[in-house]
Simulated scan of single mutants.
Amino acid sequence: MRLVSSRASKLLAAAALASLLAACQSGRTQVASLEGYTPDPALKTASKSNLKGRVSHACVVTQARFQKVAEASVEQPCGCYADRTLSSLDGGEIQSYRATGYFNDSAKAKALNALDSCKLPRPA
């Protein structure tokens, strides 16, 4: 059963991927790499469970490409990453993510720690 339309799914994947990639970029590079990016308006009202799903999906797509493996092989560690990242974020970091679609500087540090804890390589 499909829960979202194909177009919505693609937008969700793009927003999630942008947030994961932005989490691993430096501040100045981040702005340049996200030029023209518009966050999904649904982020503003998304449940924490939905945010976890978005972060996990972005991780799966990014890590599978980065490691050149099947997406299924990184689903469990990416679930770990999403759980640890979102549980470590404070209210301000969550609000920043909702507003921008990517992690702010303090959230990035927590996301990188979650990658390490879940034994996922950091994107270059």
Results as ranks from 00 to 15, higher is better:
K68A: 10
L51Y: 10
D105L: 14
S106L: 12
S88P: 02
A22W: 00
C118E: 00
P121A: 01
L20Y: 09
S33W: 04
A70N: 11
S73Q: 11
T38H: 07
S106I: 08
S56H: 00
L34D: 00
A8C: 11
Q25S: 10
S33C: 13
Y102F: 15
Y37G: 12
A114L: 06
G27Q: 14
A8M: 09
E75R: 15
A16N: 05
G27P: 11
C59R: 00
T62Y: 00
Q63R: 03
E35G: 10
P123Y: 02
A64T: 02
K68P: 01
V74S: 03
Y37E: 12
L34H: 08
Q25R: 13
L34E: 03
D116L: 11
S33V: 14
V60L: 01
L21K: 14
S117R: 12
R28L: 10
E35C: 09
Q63C: 01
C24M: 04
S33E: 09
G36R: 08
S96R: 12
Q30K: 15
C78P: 14
N50P: 03
E35Y: 09
A58W: 00
G91A: 13
N113L: 14
K68R: 15
S106K: 10
K119T: 08
V69P: 03
H57C: 08
K108C: 05
A109Q: 09
D105V: 15
D90V: 11
E35N: 07
Y81K: 02
P121H: 01
P121K: 01
Y97G: 06
R98D: 06
L89Y: 03
V60Q: 01
S47T: 14
S88M: 06
R65P: 00
S88T: 10
A8H: 11
T85H: 01
L20E: 07
G91Q: 08
R98E: 10
